[in-house]
């Protein structure tokens, strides 16, 4: 028998860590979603598909701008010493993923603005015709869309991986102690981005392209989730106990039903049938993928805080 009693009762720390509520999962979700959208729109720019009529590159950068700002607002709400937020930009701490992330976010905005200028959204052009002139001048340089595409892909990959590394760098929480969290959150970001663009794209060819891409991303996400759990289960007892929080612990139902079932397997099945023309493309599968992506972040953030090194 081992029995521990403590006189400590600090708010947000005892009886179990609860420092991050809804704000951080929302921030990680929107950050991953924008990262995925940057990679996808970067691909369209690099491959020249942005010239197609109704291409999603006409709205993806502007939408990313809005979604990323909402994510940053959620992050800001989570801070406890908000008046000092500017301190993030008076230093660069190379060992801190959060410091990397804050600087990456600063670079992401100009990259989004550059992508927006390649194909400015029509409502913006109507309001400010100079935007079209500026865009036309930039497009006179043939390498411009490709360069913007490469920058979008590179920054998107960095942003997407960062959302996972942010957690995996906190080794005191065994559930997060895996190098696979970075790739997992990146692929989940790609999958939710493909779902959102699939949902909103006007070009039917693009819709099919993103549905196919989403199926690949969902498959990889499932594989990474499996590897992540195998890695924890085959590590120390502490890590195996952390994995069981998801497998058969308090987050088991949310994980299996919400994240794996409704968030990955069902939309994957529906979208495979849709791309094989057995059923029509409907918003159901993309909406399930988006919900699953948000739930994945919530489950990982909440369960991770419950995991610890101390004996049970």
């Amino acid at each position: 028998m081992l029995e521990l009693t403590t006189t400590r009762a600090n708010p947000m720390v005892d009886p179990s860590l609860q420092v991050w509520g809804w704000e951080i999962p929302v921030y990680l979700f929107l950050g991953g979603l924008v990262a995925g959208m940057m990679i996808l729109s970067g691909y369209l720019l690099f491959s020249g598909r942005h010239q197609a009529h109704g291409s999603s590159t006409a709205f993806v950068p502007a939408l990313s701008f809005v979604l990323l700002s909402l994510g940053m607002a959620a992050l800001f709400l989570d801070l406890e010493h908000r008046a000092f937020v500017w301190r993030l930009y008076t230093t660069f701490e190379p060992a801190s993923p959060m410091s990397w992330g804050s600087w990456i976010l600063i670079l992401v905005y100009p990259a989004l603005a550059a992508a927006l200028l390649v194909r400015p959204p029509a409502p913006l052009v109507r309001r400010s015709p100079r935007l079209a002139t500026l865009s036309g001048r930039l497009l006179d340089r043939p390498g411009w869309p490709r360069a913007v595409g490469v920058a979008s892909i590179v920054l998107g990959v960095l942003l997407g991986i960062y959302t996972g590394v942010l957690l995996s760098a906190l080794g005191a929480r065994p559930l997060w102690a895996s190098g696979l969290l970075g790739p997992l959150f990146l692929v989940s970001g790609l999958s939710t981005a493909a779902a959102l663009v699939h949902l909103l794209a006007g070009d039917p060819q693009e819709r099919v392209l993103f549905a196919r891409a989403d199926n690949v991303f969902l498959g990889i996400e499932l594989l990474l989730l499996g590897l992540f759990l195998v890695g924890l289960l085959s590590a120390t007892e502490v890590h195996a106990r952390a994995a069981r929080l998801l497998l058969d612990g308090p987050f088991g139902a949310l994980f299996w039903v919400g994240v794996v079932g409704l968030g990955i397997l069902i939309p994957l099945g529906v979208q495979i049938a849709a791309v094989r023309h057995r059923v029509q493309h409907t918003p159901v599968a993309p909406l399930l993928v988006l919900g699953g992506g948000l739930l994945l972040r919530y489950v990982f953030v909440a369960a991770g805080q419950l995991s610890h090194w101390s004996p049970p």
């Binding site: 989570d78 010493h81 005191a172 610890h308 090194w309």
Partner: peptide
């Protein structure tokens, strides 16, 4: 300090608070 609470999450002893 900006109160991001990463240090609270990183401490295996839960020795910090806000």
């Amino acid at each position: 300090c900006i109160g991001c609470k990463a240090c609270l999450a990183s401490c295996p002893y839960d020795a910090r608070f806000i």
